[in-house]
Design a protein around this nucleic acid. Structure first.
Lengths: 332, 332
DNA sequence: TTGAAAGCGCTACCAC
DNA sequence: GTGGTAGCGCTTTCAA
């Protein structure tokens, strides 16, 4: 059987309520007894019983996260990063891989204090009975009244184009998923078009290359279309980490040089960008910052909700340009 | 506030101990009252409080699973399937994406009843303090005293070669990761060689094609090597789902016909095989069976451990050949 | 500064 | 068949 505070109390010769206070570092206990109790509890190998604690305190200190159904390396990096950051707090994180509704129910039985949801999980669901909810990504339903964290895709495209234009590029292509109904993809592509216009460049419709998907191979094939053009662009914005991987590969196979033949900026600001076949300059909210904001927000939400003040907000996070060596001035 | 059994008791006009029994389907309650109570509890949206239940019963009915670090579609299919199957039992499953040691500690705080571990998680760790542990995959350390579930890779290769040989193939290639130190890859590749010999075929070393990785693109590139040969094989065994995807793509690009130009069998018996560019005949333990065995074993382990009888066993599961239309007799 | 006691939601036992 | 009640391990008043 596990050691309980009563066992400790017996050994220490105090009441078990004193033990409880001591272990929770309450200022109501004399430093001396506190130290003694802590020492004894360690010697006895005491581990607090989570169930008992959460039963009485009515909070579990657990954050639940519903695993995004669309598997992308960027999302799993985000999830891992969120987990790491939560581990640094007094909270823990658990995951569910079930559909949203099922996950929500599981989490309710666990009485998790807060739930992180990815808007890619776009199933219909009823969140009315749940604990504090926070979502990441572009929401499809405006009537959902929980806070949202979302990268500013439009601004990202603006910064990418701005940087390329500054280097002297005027012929910039976008290789990304134009056919998707995923609002995130739509925002990127619209953002790109808007940015081109804002920088006074000519928007060549041929330079909007549809990958028809987000996989590595989609980027690879789409890049093939680009080589068939007579009037090739000098710079490319890749729509995602995976797509850009395919672009690089297509370049390498044709013995093309980055950045001399083509300057490339990739969407998605993840550290893995540095380990690609060719390290790419990238644009996007750094995944660490995203995770930090998500963790900070969910905890704030959880703790504020206890005082019944749920304020619905939406945070469009600012992207950053991460310079590597995949961009140069265009050849004359 | 959440609905409790007391609330239900009030509405139903019975005592709350009767509610408890009814909800646990105890034979001590009259069918009539049982039905009434269940109906009311559903209407009120009752969800049992895990913490309270586990506090008294001293078990959580939770299985923890440590997310495999190597991301493969096959593994995530397995995890999802395991989750689905656990949901059908009285247990629930939670995931941790942290390193093994951290996950183990989190799970201990949760007092999970059992833990599923993937042997890909090959970190060093101390499992001595943990609850019932079960691992999937080839263990690297023989001194670990917990049960293991593992597909019989050797038998799988035997069956694949047998089938191809039966169709009349004598020139069979293996495209897989030969350079890996992952014991699972080593077993596949050795199994293939052994199977070739057992079927009295000549083992052409050139037909062992190293993908140098498990990604889609590794299969794609490795297939290129095959086309450079003068004496090409007539049949191919693909080392994994992703690798085989690359093989198919390489075939398609060269306008080669499956199965007329090449017969292909892929390792990994997952349903997604049917949705590939070309549906492939596949070999491996069906992922559903694997999940079922894992779930059955961990639950058995959890429940037997309560009577202190931990028997360490290792289950090498039998693969199955899943016929689709990617194999035919070789051309003469 | 410490101790006693109530009670979180539930299961399980014993009475009726 | 049903109800009453003890108690799981802990936190949190309130009293001493």
């Amino acid at each position: 059987m596990n050691v309980t505070i009563k066992d400790i109390a017996n050994v220490a010769g105090v009441s078990y309520s004193t033990v409880s206070k001591a272990l929770n570092n309450s200022p109501l206990v004399k430093e001396n007894t506190k130290r003694k109790i802590i020492k004894i509890s360690q010697e006895m190998g005491y581990k607090p019983n989570f169930a008992a604690r959460s039963l009485v305190s009515n909070q579990t200190k657990i954050i639940g996260l519903i695993w995004p159904t669309i598997e992308r390396i960027v999302l799993s990096t985000l999830v891992t990063e969120i987990s790491n950051q939560i581990n640094k707090t007094s909270y823990s994180m658990i995951l569910s891989v079930d559909p949203v509704q099922t996950s929500l129910e599981t989490f309710r039985r666990f009485q998790v204090d807060g739930i992180i949801l990815f808007e890619e999980n776009n199933d219909e669901f009823d969140a009315s009975q749940s604990s504090a909810l926070l979502s990441y990504g572009v929401t499809r339903k405006d009537d959902r009244n929980y806070p949202k964290i979302d990268p500013n895709h439009e601004q990202a495209m603006h910064m990418a184009v701005e940087y390329l234009a500054m280097l002297g590029h005027t012929q910039i292509a976008y290789i990304g998923d134009l056919s998707s109904i995923d609002p995130m993809q739509i925002q990127k592509y619209k953002g790109f078009k808007k940015a081109i216009k804002q920088h006074g460049l000519f928007l060549n419709e041929d330079y909007l290359i549809d990958t028809e998907g987000l996989d590595w191979y989609n980027g690879y094939t789409a890049t093939g279309k680009l080589f068939k053009m007579t009037n090739r662009p000098t710079a490319i914005v890749g729509g995602s980490y995976d797509i850009s991987g395919g672009i690089i590969r297509a370049m390498k196979e044709r013995k093309l040089h980055i950045p001399n033949d083509f300057s490339i900026i990739s969407y998605d600001n993840v550290p893995q960008m540095a380990n690609m076949e060719f390290p790419l300059t990238s644009i996007g909210v750094p995944v660490g910052e995203l995770a930090a904001e998500i963790v900070k927000s969910i905890i704030k939400l959880v703790e504020s909700e206890e005082m019944n003040s749920i304020d619905v907000y939406s945070n469009k996070m600012m992207p950053k340009l991460n310079l590597r060596s995949s961009c140069a001035r265009p050849r004359l």
